[in-house]
């Protein structure tokens, strides 16, 4: 199981090498596995723990779909919200709120935090991994009820992130 993780990292590294050099010759075909091997031997066991998940094409497709959805739907909507606040069309009430989450993997936690931070209006300030809580600076903190806050801030990403990194 452990060894399969290294192999997943190794294969992905070869792909990344060819994306960088943008050229396929016999020399590259020989050199790419060696370069990727160096990287995989150093960090392979840390980067991928469950190779079955990393190599699943379904998760990659979900990741691609989520990226498009995030960039084309979620982010423009948040931009419009914050822009209307800046123009004085909408009220705001900035505060730091606690947002509970229920992810098991590091990557899901990090991906959700980055998704929250990258949308305008919300920023993850800190995280408490033991209590499973984000501390989010939010522009519309009218309530502090964890259930509602969670609904408003991370439910947009939640089902995607779980399909990509968990389940």
């Amino acid at each position: 199981m452990m060894r399969a993780g290294y192999i997943a990292v190794w294969l992905a590294g070869i792909l990344i090498y060819f994306l960088i050099v943008a050229r396929i010759t016999l020399f590259d075909l020989v050199v790419a596995p060696i370069i990727s091997m160096v990287a995989a031997l150093i960090v392979g066991g840390e980067v991928v723990k469950k190779p079955g998940k990393a190599l699943s094409p379904k998760r990659w497709l979900y990741g691609l779909a989520y990226t498009l959805y995030y960039l084309l739907v979620v982010e423009p909507a948040c931009h419009l919200r914050v822009a209307s606040m800046v123009l004085g069309l909408r009220d705001y009430m900035p505060d730091i709120v606690e947002v509970p989450f229920d992810y098991r993997t590091d990557y899901a936690v990090a991906a959700t935090a980055n998704s929250i931070t990258n949308t305008p209006g919300t920023i993850v300030v800190d995280i408490d991994p033991e209590a499973k809580k984000y501390f989010v600076h939010w522009l519309e903190a009218y309530t502090r009820d964890p259930r509602i806050v969670r609904e408003k801030i991370i439910m947009v990403f939640d089902k995607w992130i779980k399909k990509i990194f968990e389940d």
Binding site: I16, Y17, I20, V31, I35, S36, D106, A113, I127
Partner: peptide
């Protein structure tokens, strides 16, 4: 924090690949 650590794993991995590719 946990977030920085999770992201740094991937950054370190990519850095090694790019650095060694420079040499090769």
């Amino acid at each position: 924090s946990l977030i920085v650590r999770a992201v740094s794993k991937i950054i370190i991995w990519l850095t090694i690949i790019i650095a060694v590719a420079f040499g090769f």
